[in-house]
Design a protein around this nucleic acid. Sequence first.
DNA 1: AACAGACTCAACCGCCTGGGG
DNA 2: CCCCCAGGCGGTTGAGTCTGT
Length: 264
Amino acid sequence: MGRSPCCSKEGLNRGAWTADEDKILREYITLHGEGRWRNLPKTAGLKRCGKSCRLRWLNYLRPDIKRGNITSDEEELIIRLHKLLGNRWSLIAGRLPGRTDNEIKNYWNTNLGKKVKDGHKTSTSCRTQIPNPKLDSHLVRTKATKCTKLFFPHPSMLQLPDNSHQQQNLVADAVMTHHLELTTTDFNVGDICFSDLLDSDFTDICNNDLLFSPSSDQPYHPLCSQELLKNWTQTNFADQTTASNNLHSFISFLDTTEETLGQS
DNA sequence: AACAGACTCAACCGCCTGGGG
DNA sequence: CCCCCAGGCGGTTGAGTCTGT
């Protein structure tokens, strides 16, 4: 039996897209916008499966696609994010403006996978490090259990006594301990899910009391260096230039995170 | 020049999730 | 609840290209 295909493949073009097909798809989406992929081929007059149209648009035709070689900064970022997220290509791509998950996945499979396996020794980046096996254990794998997210309630939801710093610290300790221990699921910190966190511009983190020591104005956890977070809260990823300018700050952020995780 | 093997990357496949009825 | 559908995702494939012999 098996699963029914997403659409009838009969009479549909397959394989590489022609310039004409690209033109039709581009013009159609410019006119009508993205979405309703299943009906798109029929209404646009394309002999393609809707999924194929979606893929072609997202991975190739979108106007904000950045073409050209992956820079060493981007490469560095991919390696670090992969260390944290595993094969969550779409999440990783979300942090690399103009890059698609498919492109990053391909780049990883053809370049970085080997490179990292070889101990990252061929990297051209000045930040080259020997992989820290301790850090590798912090990988957050979520693919298999995409919907399984552990939820750590915000202290305010735990009916703690007002401003009970000690108890809030205990909760924060527990959260960070889980942060270090969790290797098989996504997780939530207060209202923030880790994957969402990486998707966000870190505004949420800054606004979340939990991650800052209640007994001082300093971040509870170095992961939340206020200066770095400030950089990120000012990021507007709609603007590609700003986004790429912030690559360095994000790399710094990851540096801090890795140091912290390495010490614990 | 010719061939084989390695590499790249666009495209496809099948599974999963979330929303709506 | 359950079912269906659309969209999203990661893994895999294979045609085209490159490189070494």
